[in-house]
Design a protein around this nucleic acid. Structure first.
Length: 115
DNA sequence: GGATTGACCGGAA
DNA sequence: GTTCCGGCCAATC
């Protein structure tokens, strides 16, 4: 079997699954790293974050956040801009608005990639 | 092949 | 309520 995708293509089946789930998140909805890991039934919050950090460029990474609804570290400003643009429900208000309202924006209907 | 880092989570002090 | 610690998994050097 091809030990590695030389040239181009999914770096690993795991990363492909993570990107697939994130790509399923509709506008105005968000998921936490732990939720994605749970949906996949594999890996962990670190595994998803690691893959996202390298290949998240191909998916709406701003719809993925940490537990509690906090934005990813280092991209709070970028994520916040996307949320305001998509109308994602924030908590605290425009002044604080540094957190997402998981009570309304938490996407749980994501399904495992059948690919 | 091994060791370190990284967009994390949860519990305890 | 906030802060610190260890544990977890995958990718990269």
């Amino acid at each position: 079997m091809v030990t590695d995708a030389t040239g181009f293509g999914p770096p690993s089946e795991f990363a492909d699954d993570v990107l697939e789930v994130v790509d399923q998140i509709p506008e105005g909805m968000v998921m936490t790293y732990g939720d994605i890991a749970e949906v996949l039934g594999r890996g962990g919050p670190r595994g998803v974050g690691s893959v996202m950090a390298r290949y998240g460029s191909d998916v709406p990474w701003w719809r993925v956040l940490r537990s509690g609804g906090w934005f990813p570290q280092g991209l709070e400003d970028e994520a916040l801009a996307h949320y305001r643009e998509e109308g994602t429900p924030l908590v605290g208000g425009a002044l604080d608005g540094r957190r997402v309202d998981l009570a309304v924006a938490r996407w749980k209907d994501a399904r495992r990639p059948t690919a």
